[in-house]
Simulated assay, not measured.
Amino acid sequence: MKKALLALADGAVFEGRALGFEGETSGEVVFNTAMTGYQEVLTDPSYKGQIITMTCPHIGNYGVTPEDVESRRMWAEGFVVKEASAITSNWRSRQHLQEYLAAAKMVAIEGIDTRALTRHLRDQGSQQGVITHLEGDKARAVEKARQAPGIIGRDLAAEVTCDRSYSWADHSGEWVPSLDPRTPPPSRRWKVVAYDFGVKHNILRRLVDVGCEVTVVPASTNAKRVEALNPDGVFLSNGPGDPEGVPYAVEAVRELIGRRPIFGICLGHQILGLALGLQTYKLKFGHHGANHPVMDLRTGKVEITSQNHNFAVRLVEPIASVPQKPPVLETGFGKVAVTHVSLNDHSIEGLACMDRPVFSVQYHPEASPGPHDSAYLFTEFIRMMEKSHA
Rank of each mutant, 00 (worst) to 15 (best):
P369R: 12
A157I: 10
D296F: 12
H364M: 04
E255T: 06
I262F: 10
V361C: 01
Q270T: 14
I203C: 08
I87F: 13
T305W: 11
T114Q: 05
E99Y: 03
L343Y: 10
N344Y: 06
G300T: 06
F378P: 00
G111F: 12
L272Y: 00
V341S: 07
I348D: 03
D10C: 01
S178A: 14
R182K: 15
R122C: 14
H372T: 12
V313R: 06
A4S: 14
R188Q: 11
M35Y: 09
P357L: 04
G264D: 12
I59W: 12
L97R: 04
H364I: 13
H340I: 02
E83L: 09
P326C: 11
F333A: 04
F378M: 03
G264P: 11
L377Q: 02
H287W: 02
S167F: 04
F333G: 02
R73H: 07
A375C: 11
R122T: 13
V193A: 06
R383Q: 14
M385A: 15
A337C: 13
A103L: 08
D232I: 05
M385P: 06
T183P: 05
L274T: 11
P186R: 12
I152E: 07
E143Q: 14
N61F: 11
Y47S: 07
A18H: 11
V199L: 06
S167P: 00
Q279F: 05
G350M: 03
V29D: 03
W91E: 15
R94P: 01
Y100Q: 08
L19D: 00
Q50S: 10
G241P: 06
P369F: 04
Y100H: 15
S187T: 13
L229R: 08
G332P: 04
Y62W: 08
R140L: 14
W91Q: 15
Q324E: 13
S178M: 10
T132D: 05
I87N: 09
Q279D: 13
M35L: 01
V358A: 00
G268R: 09
A145S: 02
A4P: 00
L97F: 05
N202F: 14
K138M: 02
P185D: 12
K284Y: 06
E22H: 10
H58L: 14
K224R: 14
M384S: 08
I382K: 01
